[in-house]
Amino acid sequence: MSAASPALSVDTLTTEIRSRGTWYQAVRAVSFQVHARETVALVGESGCGKSLTALSIMGLLPLGVGRIAGGAIALDGEAVSGRSDAQMEKIRGNRIGMVFQEPMTSLNPVLSVGFQIAEPLIYHRGLSRRAAEARAIELMHLVRIPSAAERVGAYPHQFSGGMRQRVMIALALACAPKVLIADEPTTALDVTIQAQVLALIAGLQKSADLAVLLITHNLGVVASVADRVLVMYGGDVVESAAVRDLFARPTHPYTSALLAAMPRADRSSAVIAPIPGQVPTLADMPAGCRFQSRCPLREERCAQRPSLTAIDAAGTHQVRCWVRGGASS
């Protein structure tokens, strides 16, 4: 619990999911740390394990379908993995806030917005209803919802998508958690609203010393807000770097391919290079490097699983690749 403990630390987390009676590793030995005021982004295609990593941290893996097979998760130096569901209920919403992709459907349509923001305060912090609703108005101010005092009794359908995402952020931050997990928080929003929501999260992060774990497939979002990036493919972290290094020197073939596939204002759309093939299903994942079936640089040794190896002197830029990473064994 020292000051140096990261707000969120994930150590060799392995999560399995069950498909047709067999358990497959969908997250393989993922490790990272998020410190206060830092934003770490998990990037990858659908099914790469980024959302499962978030659910594992929250203790929300669907029962009988997902399970944590190994590794440790710690909040502020205190281990939380392996706790019972009842113990996790005290952590979720209280010490970790989570913002979801779909603001249009993530709020209860029949309860007023003010009550929904107040509810975690009543539930986790034992505030009276009156005090919690007063705090809800403050939180609505904090996330810049105009005329909060008048709108505290309004229902979700009376809010636009961007406003609802602000409500979701207010909800997630109601109990002043130190960690915020944002799972595709801007995917469902217009581009202009995306920028506002990201700026809002960044502002709140500074004022509340939040550690933010941002889950996204949008590299543009990553470039604008993240400090560190973990690129995931098939449950493996294939590249981990400071955001500047990743964009300056994308090293893993998958990272390069992702960047080449990203539409950019400074180049013609004809240059966009889609990644050939599809992500194999978990049952069809190749042994060894999981990207080998789609990799242009594939070699014989890719049949063995490469390890995550530092490619710079500081050891902060790590790559899981035989060819590009120069890993020995």
Partner: peptide
Amino acid sequence: ERDFIDAGRALGFSDMRIMFAHVAPNIL
């Protein structure tokens, strides 16, 4: 299957609370 049920779980609400404070008003 609605997202706000998952959101409630992510806020640490108990099953009892989700069933009777969130599902029940919706089917009233």
